[in-house]
Design a protein around this nucleic acid. Structure first.
Lengths: 104, 104
DNA sequence: GCTTCAAATCAAAAAATGTCAATATGAAAG
DNA sequence: CTTTCATATTGACATTTTTTGATTTGAAGC
């Protein structure tokens, strides 16, 4: 896991948009192809494509080509890494002695 | 935990911006007051205030007033709830049998 | 009461993100 | 090799987010 702020922000971009959360919710039901997602999301084709790109780049979703169709599913590894990252980002350093702040 | 998409997106807004990730990184070192964050982030006062509001509304950060100063720190509970939420959002339903997709 | 200082709020501008319609790509079928 | 179909990409536009500077609020000290 590399920890540049840009990469980290990219991971969580997957979750900070309602439409993408709705897509993930659909994918929780198992792998789906783009055509099904378009139908269920009631969203334009290029708009879905845009969101799927962000989801894939975050590592949370993986895609699989099958002839003309693209199938998407939640990546177990990506999800796991996001959990690890979230934990790392929100866990205080060993000894947080709250020194040095202002006039205290 | 309520699970409206708007609320969920709000939680992860905390993590999808580089500046906010940088602020969290500083807060990992312990509670800090706004003046210290402004200094270390090299950011305008109102800009910091804006980001702190988003961080607080996400539940990841909590603030404490002390006279004129406001102190911020990472909320253990908020972080825990975000972890739970992330897990919930990325875990497939019990039996994902990948039925019904396209022409398969 | 007035003054001072930290932080929040507001309004406008700037930057980034998301949408839509059109076009491009690339696989499969004929 | 042409057509067809699913998805990706592009560019123009709309919407949202972020920044900036000015103003307001609210606590503390005089």
């Amino acid at each position: 896991m590399d920890l540049t702020p840009e990469k980290n922000a990219k991971v969580f971009k997957a979750f900070c948009d309602e439409k993408r959360l709705a897509i993930l919710e659909l994918l929780r039901g198992g792998e789906k192809c783009a055509c099904v997602l378009i139908e269920q999301m009631e969203i334009g084709q290029s708009s879905l494509s845009y969101h799927m790109k962000i989801l894939c780049e975050s590592g949370i979703v993986e895609s699989r080509q099958e002839g003309k169709w693209t199938h998407y599913k939640i990546s177990e590894q990506g999800s796991y890494e996001a959990m690890q990252l979230l934990k790392a980002i929100t866990t205080p350093y060993a000894t947080a002695d709250d020194s040095d702040c202002c006039n205290r």
